[in-house]
Design a protein around this nucleic acid. Structure first.
Lengths: 135, 135
DNA sequence: CTTGACCTTCCAGTTACTGTAAACTCCATA
DNA sequence: TATGGAGTTTACAGTAACTGGAAGGTCAAG
């Protein structure tokens, strides 16, 4: 199978698959006599695995860890859970932070709404010194 | 005022201030006779403005827009609100996406918890084809 | 035999900085 | 007056994870 078909089946752009090979995340693919990369079914599974992990927000190096664990099934469980849990915590932190940024900005927009002066209080707030505690 | 003091007062690393100058986000600072960058009070306000906008998640190019609007107060209100609203929507999308990723992963962790087989179902799920609808 | 789709490599660009190195400049103290 | 340390300058490289584009090779269909 050539890279285009693998791209379709795995959900990853061909370009990205080559990139993953270049950074050593996946083993170099075999080659046809003419130099095209040649893939097998199991490669698609690996790439799907990577695609899925990435879509869940794991970094490349975390995916690399997960791939190692995947290839060592019998002691995977605890470590995978640990990695996943840490990842969930990280996501939680990000969600909280985004939510708080959003709330702050929404409040500023509301203030601007009820205000009929030509200049927007949002910008004034941005420019004010020591505004951390004022919102 | 030299860059170090401005860094302290604005909350931005000196390095970052130089960077902002290099990409044209802020005007080049004046120089002392010996070549050090020389700043005034109003520069601190501008940098604070940038710091605050960035901390609310605006990209550099959005900050650039905001700075332009800031310098044109009388027609700022509507445009600033629009920019801010779009930004809030974008944050909402990110929050939703992160939340959904988190939920998915949490579910997988739960599945792993109640399972006493040595290999973790998380990895199996990662590797499964067409798993988009299965969670 | 040619066209077009697909493949190859390599290099550059993206975002927003951060790290590091080598070389000043300035101020205070011995 | 010398020197030491803190602060400053520039320039270059690196980060994360790709993405875009150029220039060229390959293959099947018509």
């Amino acid at each position: 199978m050539k890279i285009g078909q693998v791209a379709t089946k795995s959900g990853l752009p061909a370009k990205t698959i080559r990139y993953y090979e270049s950074i050593g995340l996946i083993d170099p693919a075999g080659r046809t006599s003419s130099g095209y990369r040649a893939y097998e079914e199991k490669d698609i599974q690996t790439l799907r695995f990577i695609q899925r992990s990435r879509s869940l927000g794991f970094s490349i190096s975390e995916v690399s860890e997960l791939l190692t664990l995947w290839n060592d099934r019998n002691r995977a469980s605890a470590q995978v859970k640990e990695l996943a849990r840490r990842h969930v915590e990280e996501m939680d932190r990000k969600i909280t932070e985004l939510q708080s940024m959003k709330d702050t900005l929404s409040e500023l927009i509301d203030k601007c709404q009820g205000d009929h002066r030509p200049d927007c209080p949002i910008l004034n707030d941005f420019a004010r010194l020591n505004n951390k505690a004022k919102i």
